[in-house]
Simulated scan of single mutants.
Amino acid sequence: MMAINRYRLKALAKTNKNAKRTERLLEDLDPLIGTILLGNNLVNIFASSIATILAIKLWGDGSVILASLALTFIILVFAETTPKTFAAKNPEKIALPASIVIEAFIQIFKPFVWLIAQLSQGILAILGIKEKSDTGDISSEELKMVVNDAKPIIASNYQKMLLNIIDLEKVKVEDIMIPRHELISIDTSKPDEIIKQLQRTQHTRLLTYDTSSNNITGVLHMRNVVNLYAKDAFSVENVLALIRKPYFVPEGTSLAHQLKHFQMQKRRLGLVVDEYGEIRGLIVLEDILEEIVGQFTSNQNESIDEVIKQEDGSYLVDPRVSIRELNALLNTNLSVDKAKTLNGLILEELQSIPKRDVSIKIDNILIDIIQITDRTIKLVKLTKIDPS
């Protein structure tokens, strides 16, 4: 009963009466366990009494100890170890038909089981132990174990996607956002330069601001600008009319919630803001989907440019790369708790801007500083160290 797979039992219960009965019995464990223990102890004590009486009548008082040892051996082998091991390895074969008998005994011994349960709870209450209600909720870690155990029936790529979906609640928008300093925006307060800025851009979406880059006014989609060209209606006024109001996302929002918000708001991107309303970066729907299914082809070249493998097995890395992306590319396990980029992780470890040719070891990764400026690190070399 206890070894049976609950998920398979739930599936069998739709077509099998015995499985449905077994599932019903397992929903309330107190009478089930109480009845089984009552019957088990009753039979064992009864068998012990019979063995003692028979031993005294056949071989005298001195044979009681031998009879007890012999009965203990018989019970352990034939009534405990062997049948329970067999049942644990074949739970459906035993539990489903046995549910008929057990349900009948539960009804017969119900008053005795209830009385024993009340006495037990009373004693536990005196000892200060309160009964905890089991809600039956399954944690994310337990759910991940279920997915991992389903390897024979779920393809590895689908299994990885399911695990990524479970982890969406743990990942925050700031973990995968495009940092503020990497965002491309155009100044709408200078109409004469708007066309030049649009001609230079290589992005499909642009942020717009008025006079100051901190005064974000909206988002402009280049597809709509191209449509203006197609309709021969291109003008600065028509371009400005295409600007869509910005959509702000609070820092700390989980990817699971943000994916739902994007769907409800019919949005594809949002500006991540901190508690003071300052813009920290940009979160895009495609980035959330990549957390589930892996990188899309359109973004793979960017990752390759940021991480270049060398002949000696090391990697030249742009330290602005996110740690999550680096972990995925190099199969490493660098922490994302304190910093989101490799540059931030290095500065967090050193507590200062390092000099060139400085090396630092984090976990099993040796990081050599190759290029720096006065304010930030420009290029590093990563070497994976064998833990052994």
Rank of each mutant, 00 (worst) to 15 (best):
L285G: 01
F248H: 12
I184E: 07
N157R: 06
E286G: 08
L379E: 10
A55M: 01
R223V: 12
R375D: 09
Q263K: 15
V171I: 15
I176F: 03
R6H: 14
A125Y: 11
Y315L: 04
I33C: 06
V284H: 00
T35E: 02
V225E: 06
D149M: 12
H257D: 15
A155S: 13
K160T: 14
R268C: 08
L255C: 06
V147N: 04
R267M: 15
N331H: 14
D386Q: 14
I186Q: 02
T204G: 15
P83A: 08
A328I: 12
I123E: 02
R356T: 14
I367R: 03
R205Q: 10
T297E: 14
A150M: 12
T35C: 00
V307N: 05
I129L: 12
L115R: 06
Q199P: 05
T373R: 07
I53V: 15
S189F: 04
E349V: 09
N90K: 11
L316T: 03
E275S: 13
L76R: 06
K340W: 00
G277Q: 07
K355Y: 05
P191Y: 04
V101K: 01
I153V: 15
E237G: 00
F86C: 06
I108S: 02
A125F: 13
A47Q: 01
I74Q: 01
G252S: 10
I216Y: 00
Y247N: 07
M222K: 07
A328D: 11
P387K: 12
I178E: 03
L242M: 07
L37F: 09
I75C: 00
I50H: 05
L69N: 05
G281F: 01
L168G: 01
N16C: 04
R180W: 02
A125L: 10
I372P: 03
D187T: 05
E92S: 10
V380H: 05
G39F: 06
K132H: 11
A233W: 01
I123T: 11
Y315A: 05
I165H: 00
I283Y: 03
S156G: 06
H221E: 09
I323W: 01
P152N: 07
A51C: 02
K309T: 07
Q295Y: 12
I304L: 15
V43P: 02
A51Y: 02
R375C: 08
H203S: 11
K309R: 15
S212I: 03
V336Q: 09
V239Y: 05
E169F: 04
D312Q: 13
I36F: 13
S185T: 11
T52E: 02
F112V: 00
K151M: 08
R200G: 09
K170M: 07
L168Y: 00
K57W: 06
P250L: 04
Q197S: 13
V307M: 09
N41E: 04
Q351C: 08
E80M: 04
K84D: 07
P354K: 07
Q159I: 09
R268I: 14
D287I: 09
A88K: 09
S212W: 05
R8N: 10
Q159G: 14
L282T: 04
D274T: 03
K89T: 06
L330P: 08
F296M: 13
K132Q: 13
I346F: 06
L282V: 13
I362P: 03
N90Y: 12
K17L: 04
N331T: 06
V358E: 15
T253A: 11
